[in-house]
Design a protein around this nucleic acid. Structure first.
Length: 242
DNA sequence: AACCTTAGCAACCGCAAACGG
DNA sequence: CCCGTTTGCGGTTGCTAAGGT
């Protein structure tokens, strides 16, 4: 058929799309992704929008290499929890499950190759091998959850010393504070303890550049917002008050 | 310089859980 | 309680840049 119906876009996001998404999320908050997908004018699914936001555009995200501390934490938490990426990600502020998953895959691929090449167990040269954090050596991986389930001593709480007791989840308040004050580096307040030295050493937290570009004229105006929101039946108690 | 391989990353898909009417 | 919708998660795929031959 020749009907030129616009299909849902897939594939890599363009800068313009990012911009549109950021503006829309800024207006309506991080929820109702189908709605956001609609009103943003993006020809994307809500799912795709959410993913892009969570993995790339979220202002609290860290970018760049994993710090040694993060690497170690991933290894240890994975030894403990397996492929529970989102759970692991919650222990690594600013990192996404996708990022950790990707990291693990490439990292483990390397490790597997290394292992193949030198089968002798004692010849592991790296300072931290997968073995070193196997369940046999639970060491410091027990967190709050484990204290509940296993009555462990919760060494991770010592790692996370200085952090809020419950690190699960990224407080919306903070996100919106960051939005309000884009110059304020995002994230560190999660683990402002000494281990956070890595965060500052391993590379600064780079606030998503999109926020710099999100200028009012490219966004919906408040009037538009209200119109659109009422059209779709949203807008009450959704997102921040601007 | 051209080609091939590999690592790293972004994005999609399917499924399940959570939520709301 | 049921059912439709939304959200979150984990697995997988595809693209691209970098490195090697």
């Amino acid at each position: 058929m020749v009907t030129v119906r616009e299909e849902t876009r897939k594939g890599p996001w363009t800068e313009q799309e990012d911009l549109q998404l950021v503006c829309t999320v800024r207006l309506f908050g991080e929820r109702r992704w189908d709605f956001i997908a609609k009103v943003s004018g993006l020809n994307r699914t809500g799912k795709s929008c959410r993913l892009r936001w969570v993995n790339y555009l979220h202002p609290g995200l860290k970018r760049g290499r994993m710090s040694p501390h993060e690497e170690r934490l991933i290894l240890e938490l994975h030894a403990r929890w397996g492929n529970r990426w989102s759970r692991i990600a919650r222990r690594l502020p600013g990192r996404t499950d996708n990022e950790i998953k990707n990291y693990w895959r490439t990292h483990m691929r390397k490790k597997a190759q290394e292992r193949k090449s030198n089968m002798s167990p004692s010849s592991s040269s790296s300072s931290l091998t997968y073995q070193s954090c196997h369940p046999e050596t639970p060491s410091m991986i027990l967190g709050v959850d484990e204290q509940e389930h296993h009555g462990g001593s919760g060494c991770i709480t010592s790692i996370m010393k200085g952090a809020p007791a419950d690190m699960d989840g990224y407080p919306m308040d903070q996100i919106w504070m960051e939005i309000e004050a884009p110059n304020v580096l995002a994230g560190p307040c999660f683990d402002e303890g000494k281990e956070d030295a890595y965060n500052s050493v391993s590379g600064p937290l780079l606030p998503t550049p999109m926020w710099d570009y999100c200028c009012p004229e490219t966004c919906l105006t408040m009037d538009d917002e209200i119109k659109v929101a009422s059209k779709y039946g949203y807008g009450k108690g959704v997102g921040p008050c601007y």
